[in-house]
């Protein structure tokens, strides 16, 4: 890995870290969702600083080029991230549905009581 590639990798990792910390600090990203992105930054930094690890993993999975290893892990990471969000959306969908139903029921019961009081 050339010095330029290393510097580029380190800058990207630090940028990811800074943006995530900033978003959590501003309250735009919840802490529970930040860990996955922080982990991405850490993994990128480790691979840039210890290139031998990337070569070892490339050898381990039977890939020819280290870039292939990076692409494979990026895709796996994105799939896991999508799955994580799909699970969260499923939970939120149920919660929104239950909440909307509760609001509708309370509103109907409130209207009923007001009608009884008005009579």
């Amino acid at each position: 890995m050339t010095a330029t590639q290393k510097i580029f990798g380190i800058i990207i990792s630090i940028c990811i870290f800074t943006i995530i910390i900033y978003l959590v600090k501003k309250g735009k990203l919840r802490e529970e969702y930040s860990w996955l992105w922080l982990l991405t930054g850490v993994v990128m930094l480790v691979l840039v600083l210890w290139y031998d690890i990337l070569l070892f993993v490339t050898h381990l999975i039977g890939a020819v080029l280290p870039t292939t290893t990076l692409f494979i892990f990026s895709i796996v990471f994105l799939i896991l991230l999508s799955l994580h969000f799909a699970i969260k959306i499923s939970i939120l969908t149920d919660e929104v549905k239950n909440l909307a139903q509760k609001v509708s029921l309370l509103e109907a019961e409130n209207n009923q009581q007001q009608t009884i009081l008005a009579q």
Partner: peptide
Amino acid sequence: ALIISHPFNMGYGTALQTGYKY
């Protein structure tokens, strides 16, 4: 009839379930 109004459209099955909950 007594009316229960959903705040937004949620589909036939959810409307049924609101009725069950009532």
